[in-house]
Design a protein around this nucleic acid. Structure first.
Lengths: 181, 181
DNA sequence: CTTGCATTTCAGAAATTACTGAAATGCGTG
DNA sequence: CACGCATTTCAGTAATTTCTGAAATGCAAG
């Protein structure tokens, strides 16, 4: 890996972090490398920059594509694939959340619903617990749906509200801006 | 593993899910088992229920304790340790978020800040990218701080606002409920 | 201080996951 | 349709993580 120290350290950090999430070190490093690069990079360049095998690069890129985290580009007169990350960081966050939801939340909801379908079976506590968990997850995904309907600007606005959130709820409630869901 | 099918399937599901997060299958299963149990369980019971080794149980419980995800209980006249999960699901979510933040977000923020400290080094794009990422993460953690200051009831209120969030922002802005952050 | 139970530690075994090089496939160009 | 380059697949190997049984530790009660 022969990169400027800044890139080097950034990439190593996200390699480590990657392994705490579901993705492996290499995939994290590839993403970090692309993230810092203004120009799209091809597989050969990535392979050299990270000192990994060409096939590892190929698998890593495939993984990133399955997460919708990289975009494929082409240069005129060059038939190699070039990869970039979106310029808009919020778009990256949205993609991450959406993909994790698809892979983790949705299957969990199906399982919980399936378990509830079986009806009472003797352990009322466990059944209540499962129902409660399902409700919580549904509530959070609905909230997320709402947030993802907002454009970036609005989201930033919401985020920067800082400590005014609680007060806002008060005001809204007094004004009956919304009713019971 | 000799459990009712409901418990069985719930536990297996969270075992699988656990491995997508940083935690391993066994730890996920132990947590799922405790989650469904009204009564606190001791290590011996868990070992038998999941058909794992006693030492594996011990390590799993240690891991869960390090995440603050289980509570230790004692029964009079019994010196074994008993474990439970909190009744309040929101508390569980809060703990999860707080711990992941401590382990993933905070170290990342330090790294990014350290990288920025090094000052201009030739790659303006990469430096801008890192700064932008740091700002995004800071914004999200501030938002999270705000949300975690709210009590459960308020949070549910916020979550169930459904599609009224965007409108609420409009209204609030018109009324100048908050200014620039 | 010893006994008896409960828990933890730890080194090695087992299982899983990641990585590589070589071969195969795909695909545009002449 | 064959050549050349780019990418993917895959079987074997390497590395890492998880799990176990045995030994060590801890600790309350007698």
């Amino acid at each position: 890996m022969n990169l400027p120290p800044l890139h080097q350290d950034f990439i190593l950090h996200f390699g480590e972090m990657g392994s705490r999430w579901g993705i492996n070190r290499t995939v994290g490093q590839i993403y970090a490398l692309l993230f810092l690069s203004e120009e799209p990079l091809n597989a050969e360049t990535i392979t050299d920059a990270l000192s990994i095998s060409r096939s590892n690069t190929s698998m890593g890129l495939k993984e990133l594509q399955s997460w919708n985290l990289v975009r494929l580009r082409h240069k005129p007169g060059d038939r190699r694939d070039y990869f970039t990350t979106p310029d808009d960081l919020w778009e990256i966050v949205r993609t991450l959340v959406a993909e994790r939801r698809k892979r983790e939340i949705d299957p969990t909801l199906s399982t919980l619903r399936e378990l509830e379908m079986r009806g009472p079976g003797g352990d009322a506590y466990a059944e209540a617990r499962i129902a409660e968990l399902r409700e919580l997850i549904e509530m959070m995904t609905q909230f997320h749906d709402e947030m993802s309907r907002m454009e970036t600007e609005r989201l930033v606005q919401l985020m920067t509200m800082g400590r005014r959130l609680g007060g806002l709820l008060d005001t809204a409630q007094k004004m009956k801006i919304w009713g019971k869901s």
